[in-house]
Simulated assay, not measured.
Amino acid sequence: MGLEAVRIIDLPKISDPRGNLTFVEGGRHIPFDIKRVYYLYDVPGGETRGGHAHRNLQQLIIAMSGSFEVLLDDGYKRKTISLNRSYRGLLIPTMVWRELVDFSSGSVCMVLASEYYDEADYYREYEDFYKAVREK
């Protein structure tokens, strides 16, 4: 898959003078059923989150508030995507290394995951990830 499968997904946005509403339906707006939801908040300035890849898990990352950048690497190419809209999600397929950086003050990052937490699904060392990608 690699970086060519990474994409921004525009989620439904229902505008209303009382406040906007956006929703995500697993298997409809994103190509997987949602098995886990988690969010990052109160990230101190200069900190990096992520720093791993997944063997089987896919994710949709959304900047619910504020902004941050996602550094992506498939073992061959790298790119950076900025997230700053709560109605846009970044779809990350399997076997893509990701690091989240440059969090704005008060930012909140929500992640929708295709699988339940499983430590065995993670590549936590870049060298192990890189080797696995090159062996395929």
Score class of each variant (00 low, 15 high):
Ala5Gly: 10
Val6Phe: 08
Ile8Pro: 07
Ile8Lys: 10
Pro12Ser: 09
Lys13Tyr: 08
Ile14Met: 11
Pro17Arg: 02
Gly19Tyr: 00
Val24Ile: 13
Val24Phe: 04
Glu25His: 08
Arg28Asn: 13
Asp33Gln: 10
Ile34Trp: 10
Val37Ser: 10
Tyr38His: 13
Tyr39Ala: 15
Tyr39Gln: 14
Val43Thr: 09
Gly46Thr: 05
Thr48Pro: 00
Thr48Trp: 01
Gly50Val: 04
Gly51Val: 09
Gly51Tyr: 04
His52Arg: 10
His54Tyr: 08
Arg55Val: 15
Arg55Pro: 05
Arg55Tyr: 10
Asn56Gln: 12
Ile61Met: 07
Ala63His: 05
Ser65Asp: 05
Val70His: 00
Leu71Thr: 00
Leu72Ile: 02
Gly89Val: 02
Leu91Ser: 02
Thr94Trp: 03
Met95Thr: 04
Val96Tyr: 04
Trp97Leu: 11
Glu99Gln: 13
Glu99Lys: 10
Val101Phe: 02
Ser105Ile: 02
Ser105Val: 05
Gly106Ile: 07
Cys109Trp: 02
Met110Glu: 06
Val111Gln: 01
Ser114Glu: 09
Tyr116Glu: 14
Tyr116Asn: 11
Tyr117Val: 04
Tyr117Ala: 10
Asp118Gln: 02
Tyr126Ala: 07
Asp128Val: 06
Asp128Thr: 04
Tyr130Thr: 00
Lys131Tyr: 08
